[in-house]
Simulated scan of single mutants.
Amino acid sequence: MHYPEPITKLMDSFMKLPGIGPKTAARLAFFTLDMKEEDVLDFAKALVDAKRNLSFCSVCGHITDKDPCYICSDTSRDRSIVCVVQEAKDVIAMEKMRDFHGLYHVLHGTISPMDGIGPEDINIPDLLKRLQDDTIQEVILATNPNVEGEATAMYISRLLKPSGITVTRIAHGLPVGGDLEYADEVTLSKALEGRREI
């Protein structure tokens, strides 16, 4: 079916989002056309503002509109524990349970040789720099329990063992192959409680 060019461009833009195929993109495009112009402009402004005004914290790598982020700036947090996660959305998932009061380090990915992603391609060098601070006593590896997450956790644990820092791994209360962002607070809390040294 042939659509006018503006609709085709809009559909192509929606299809760049994860999980959006041609049918959903067409539905979203036509829904957008039915919206009030004011709402469409607000939506477009929200997209542009998010892209322009958000960056990554220079300390932990979490997404933020202020540097350092609100977690790194919070002096009441336990600075002796750093929880290492894959993505910024994992920090948000961990914060929802309200049981962890330490700091975070966001890797922005995992080691994946099949995809050509090595340790230097994710935020591991910055983690090593942070750990030179004698304040940090424990690193909790909270990467996803899938092949890449496990490989990344094992790599980091081997790097840190000689340093004398306690390295723990969240327990497998999470389903293997699952993602932190989709886990409920109880599951995350149990996984954190059952962490073990690796």
Score class of each variant (00 low, 15 high):
E185Q: 12
G102Y: 14
T135N: 09
E38N: 07
C72D: 02
S13C: 14
S58W: 14
H108A: 01
M1G: 09
I111Y: 03
L159P: 05
S157K: 04
Y70D: 07
V186I: 14
G116V: 08
A25R: 11
S157V: 01
N144C: 04
L41S: 12
R130Y: 04
S157T: 03
A50F: 13
D34A: 12
K161A: 02
A50H: 10
A88D: 13
L188I: 11
Y70V: 08
G116M: 05
I63G: 01
P22V: 11
F14E: 02
D42C: 14
S80P: 12
S157M: 00
F100E: 01
K51L: 02
R27F: 03
R169V: 04
P22I: 14
S76K: 15
I117V: 14
K89M: 11
C83A: 13
L174I: 15
V48L: 12
G149V: 12
G178W: 01
E95V: 05
V59Q: 06
C60K: 10
V59L: 06
Q132N: 13
L192H: 10
L141N: 00
K9N: 09
D74P: 13
L107H: 10
D133W: 13
C57G: 07
L103Q: 09
S76T: 15
V40A: 14
V147Y: 00
G164D: 02
L28E: 07
S76L: 08
C72R: 07
R169E: 02
E150W: 09
H105Q: 08
M35Q: 14
R130H: 06
G116W: 08
H2W: 10
E38F: 07
V85R: 06
E5W: 12
D99N: 13
K45P: 01
Q137V: 05
V139N: 11
R98P: 03
A183T: 06
V147M: 03
F14G: 07
P22G: 09
Y104L: 06
D39N: 12
C72A: 02
A26T: 11
R52F: 04
V176E: 02
R195L: 03
L174Y: 13
M15C: 11
I136K: 08
K190C: 04
L28N: 02
E148D: 08
L160A: 02
V139R: 06
H2F: 15
I140F: 14
I7W: 02
T143E: 05
D34S: 14
D74W: 11
K45G: 07
M1V: 08
T24F: 12
H2S: 15
L10D: 07
L127W: 12
A153N: 04
H62Q: 08
K51Y: 00
V139M: 13
V91N: 04
F31S: 11
V91M: 04
N53E: 06
H105P: 10
L47H: 13
P22A: 11
D78P: 07
T168S: 10
E193M: 15
Q137G: 15
D121E: 05
N53Q: 04
L174R: 10
A171C: 00
C60W: 08
V91F: 05
V59E: 02
F100K: 09
G149D: 03
V85P: 09
T75K: 15
T152G: 01
S157G: 04
D115M: 10
I122S: 05
R77I: 01
P145A: 06
T8I: 08
I140K: 08
S157I: 01
L10R: 12
T75C: 09
K9E: 08
N123A: 10
I63P: 02
T143V: 05
A26V: 04
